[in-house]
Simulated assay, not measured.
Amino acid sequence: MYTEIEQQTLDIDWFFTDGNYISFVASGAGKLPETVANSEVNNKKLVSYFKGLPNISDTIINPLLDGLLTKIFGSGADERYLRDFMYFTQRGLYSFDKTNLNDFTDTQYHLVSTPVKPLKVTDLPPDILDILIQTKIEDNIKLISDLDASKII
Rank of each mutant, 00 (worst) to 15 (best):
N43P: 05
D146S: 13
P115S: 11
L93P: 04
L119Y: 04
D58H: 09
L53Y: 05
L147I: 06
T17K: 02
L124R: 02
V36D: 03
I61F: 05
Y49H: 10
L101R: 01
G52H: 03
F88E: 00
D127A: 10
V121P: 07
T3L: 03
I72Y: 06
P118M: 10
K71M: 09
N140E: 13
F16R: 10
I61C: 02
A37D: 06
F104H: 15
I5S: 14
P118G: 08
D18T: 11
D66W: 04
S113W: 02
V116T: 15
I5E: 15
I133F: 02
A29S: 15
N102E: 15
T17A: 03
M86P: 01
D13R: 11
K151C: 14
D127M: 07
I144K: 03
L147D: 01
L32T: 04
K117D: 11
S57H: 09
P126Y: 04
I60Y: 09
M86Y: 12
L68P: 03
S23A: 15
D146I: 15
V112N: 01
W14F: 15
N20F: 10
G92M: 06
D58F: 14
I137C: 08
D103C: 11
K44N: 14
G76D: 07
L69P: 01
F50S: 06
K98I: 00
T35C: 09
I153Y: 12
N38Y: 07
L143I: 06
D84K: 13
I72T: 11
D66N: 13
G52C: 09
